[in-house]
Every structure is written in structure tokens, then in C-alpha cells.
């Protein structure tokens, strides 16, 4: 019979007669060491915890679009259970995206510091680690460029500021063809629904993580050329606007 792989610890202990004698003491010993230093810790069979994995291996780690579409479709179906209306559904999608935004923020900065490339900031200071965004504009550029590239492999299509003087706290990020909506067609009675509310939740998570209290919503704005064009409306809270004024006076960039 073939020798069991070295990492199959449980197996080699339970059916010890089969396991080769040279292999057994070693595995038992390492297991004893592990349980000694950390009681109750269960290590995966290949002994690689999440702390042993690299965070920068992104080159060949891209997911297939089909499986993403399937998963996202299931997420929408899941969110659709026991909802009262479109707004409720969008709120649930938003809540699903929010924690992802918080995580992506840390990952984004980690990746750009460790490679120390100019991936994050378009400024000329490429060698220094990127700064946390302190002002609204830097934050929005971060979302528009690096975050979008991390998620979808390209930058967003437009970034605009509200022209109305009543709403200086509103900004718009436009995506002509959001990837999440590629395989989703809403029924006619739900034409208002935009499942990119999930992406809006991600944006909200990123803004909140940086300390910018925000409400983000996704809106359909189809054009002839881009039928699924989506506008993400970013509305910053009053405390953020107040702080923005203080920082502007202090000359913080």
C-alpha cells in the first residue's frame, strides 16, 4: 500500500500499522510541539495557517468570471429572502459589501507598501509608502483608481462633484459597465433595482474605514452606448465636511 502523505497526521496515527515507521515519530513529535505551545489550536492538515500564506500572490490568483457570477447571483437570491422591497434588498446587499470594503482597504495599503510601487498614488513620490487619505479628494481618487483596479482590473470611468450648491457633500463615481451586473437582468417590476448596491457597500466600507462617514447608493443611469451604466452617489456626513474645512484651512493635503 502506498505511504500516506506526510501531512495526513490524523490518518497516520489512527491506522498506525500502515504508516512507515520513520515517518510516524516525526509527525507525532511536531504535533506534540504544536499542542504544547498553543493548546486547543487546530492546524490545517498541510500545517499552513493563514499567517504562513503570502498576501502578494495575486498574479495567478484571479477568479473565473463564471464562478463569480454564480456566487454573486446566489448572494442576491439570499438577500432577496424575506425582504419587503427593492430598498430593503439594496440595503442588504450594501451590508454584505461593507465588511469587504474595510478589509480591502488594509490589503490595498499592504500590497502597495510591500511592493513600494507607485500603484496607489499617482504622485511622483513612488518610493515612500502611501499615505492614508486625509482629504475627500484623495480618498475618492483612491477609490476611483487603485480600489477599482484591485476589484475589477481597471479604473472607474468618471469621478464628479455635485454641481448643485445645496449638496456640496455629494460626489459621483461612474462605472459604465459594472462587472457585478453583467449577468443580472432585473425583472420589469423591479427596474429600479441595481445590484451594484453591493459595490456601493464596499465603497462605504472603505470610506468609513478611513474615517469618512458616508452613505453610498447605486443608481441606474443607462445611456444608449452603455445600457448598464451605474452611478455611485457618495454622500459624506456633516462632521466630515466640517473637518474638511478645518483641514483645508490648516493646509493639510
Amino acid at each position: 500500500m502506498a505511504a500516506p502523505p506526510r501531512h495526513a497526521t490524523m490518518q497516520s496515527i489512527s491506522n498506525g500499522g500502515i504508516a512507515p515507521g520513520t515517518d510516524r515519530p516525526q509527525t507525532q513529535q511536531t504535533q506534540a510541539q504544536l499542542s504544547q505551545q498553543s493548546p486547543g489550536l487546530r492546524v490545517p492538515s498541510n500545517r499552513k495557517t493563514i499567517y504562513d500564506r503570502h498576501l502578494n500572490r495575486s498574479r495567478n490568483a484571479e477568479l473565473s468570471r463564471a464562478s463569480f457570477a454564480f456566487l454573486f447571483g446566489e448572494m442576491v437570491t439570499y438577500a432577496q429572502r424575506r425582504v419587503t422591497g427593492i430598498q430593503d434588498l439594496e440595503k442588504r446587499l450594501n451590508e454584505q459589501g461593507y465588511p469587504l470594503g474595510l478589509r480591502l482597504l488594509d490589503l490595498l495599503f499592504y500590497r502597495s507598501t510591500s511592493t513600494s510601487s507607485s500603484a496607489l498614488s499617482s504622485s511622483s513620490t513612488s518610493s515612500s509608502p502611501p499615505n492614508r487619505p486625509l482629504r475627500i479628494i484623495t480618498l475618492l481618487h483612491l477609490i476611483h483608481g487603485p480600489l477599482w483596479r484591485l476589484l475589477f482590473g481597471r479604473a472607474a470611468d468618471a469621478l464628479e462633484h455635485s454641481v448643485s450648491p445645496d449638496t456640496p457633500n455629494e460626489y459621483m463615481i461612474t462605472d459604465n459597465d459594472p462587472m457585478v451586473n453583467t449577468y443580472i437582468s432585473a425583472p420589469r417590476d423591479m427596474s429600479m433595482l441595481n445590484c451594484a448596491a453591493y459595490v456601493a457597500g464596499i465603497i462605504e466600507g472603505v470610506c468609513d474605514g478611513c474615517g469618512f462617514e458616508t452613505k453610498v447608493s447605486a443608481h441606474n443611469q443607462p445611456t444608449e452606448l452603455w445600457p448598464s451604466r451605474t452611478v455611485f452617489l457618495v454622500r459624506f456626513g456633516d462632521p466630515v465636511m466640517e473637518r474638511e474645512k478645518v483641514l483645508e484651512r490648516a493646509g493639510v493635503k
Binding site: 493563514i50 499567517y51 500564506r53 498576501l55 474595510l102 478589509r103 488594509d106 490589503l107 499592504y110 510591500s114
Partner: peptide, 8 residues
Amino acid sequence: ENYVKTAM
């Protein structure tokens, strides 16, 4: 680095 791994 380890914190990011935890958060992920």
C-alpha cells in the same frame, strides 16, 4: 502584515 492576514 500579520494583522492584515487576520483581517482577511
